[in-house]
């Protein structure tokens, strides 16, 4: 097999995968539509691609769609940025004071394993039925993991390099700024990917609990008025948002990550 044959084969295989991926999606939509049009499934419960299309179109015409998307996206953005920056801050604090890290270790472990949704009702009582509660909910879910992953990144700093800094009598701040943070840079960037998925879970959970707007609200409202077209439209919009955000973070990672 020549090199050009190899490349051809490789490309053909890649194209085949893409085509199959698209065909699965297409047949899912087509079968779903046929089943509901022929009344094999109850379109009142299972909706149908056509109904979803109409629902989303109407939401778009009334501009409501964009309000909901905007609400959810801004909640995601705030929680994501807060989660990463607070996580970085606390991880640095733990790195600089190992005793502090040891004191909080069991609390982090317990909080990490607790299903944070359980705290939802308390959060609403304390912070009220508003956006603040949604962001707190998302933070509870993404912060602990951010702290743990960034902290372990900081701890991986090369011991010989740390000693080298000591031989020049470097201050703690110099070591942090010139060695520890640059060393952990890639692992901090990698933690963004984990953080975005968790933030999405947090925000949607929060919206389920309290919101007056947002994609989570759309889904819950649809359930309450038994408008399953709305529920499934909401899920599909959410699917698209998550996919775009995830791809966005991967792209960001590709741009930001450094190879030495």
């Amino acid at each position: 097999m020549s090199q050009s044959d190899f490349i051809k084969k490789y490309k053909r295989n890649k194209r085949f995968i893409k085509v199959m991926q698209f065909l699965i999606l297409l047949s899912f939509i087509v079968i779903w539509q046929i089943l509901s049009s022929t009344n094999v499934i109850n379109s009142f419960i299972y909706s149908s691609p056509y109904n979803v299309f109409i629902t989303i179109k109407n939401l778009a015409i009334s501009k409501e769609l964009f309000t909901h998307i905007f609400t959810t996206l801004s909640e995601i953005f705030i929680s994501f940025v807060l989660g990463i920056s607070l996580g970085l801050f606390i991880a640095i604090l733990f790195y600089e004071c190992p005793t502090l890290a040891k004191i909080f270790d069991p609390y982090l472990t317990v909080l990490n394993s607790l299903p944070k949704v359980a705290l939802g009702p308390i959060i609403i009582i304390i912070f009220g039925a508003n956006t603040k509660s949604i962001i707190i909910m998302a933070l509870l879910i993404n912060l602990i993991v951010s702290i743990i992953s960034i902290y372990s990144g900081l701890k991986e700093t090369d011991k010989v390099r740390l000693k080298m800094f000591d031989t020049f009598k470097a201050t703690k701040w110099q070591k942090l700024k010139m060695l520890v943070l640059p060393s952990a840079y890639n692992s901090i960037i990698a933690s963004l990917k984990l953080n975005i998925s968790l933030t999405l879970i947090g925000v949607i959970t929060g919206e389920f609990l309290v919101s007056k707007s947002g994609i989570g609200y759309l889904i819950i409202y649809g359930t309450q008025v038994f408008n399953l077209d709305l529920v499934i439209s909401g899920i599909i919009i959410l699917l698209v948002i998550s996919y775009i955000l995830y791809k966005g973070v991967i792209l960001l990672e590709k741009i930001l990550i450094k190879t030495y």
Partner: peptide, 19 residues
């Protein structure tokens, strides 16, 4: 113990930068 994200010049300068 060179820092891989710094050039040779910046690595050689590191001690002086710290002091």
């Amino acid at each position: 113990a060179l820092l891989p994200w710094l050039t040779v010049l910046d690595n050689a300068l590191l001690g002086l930068k710290i002091t």
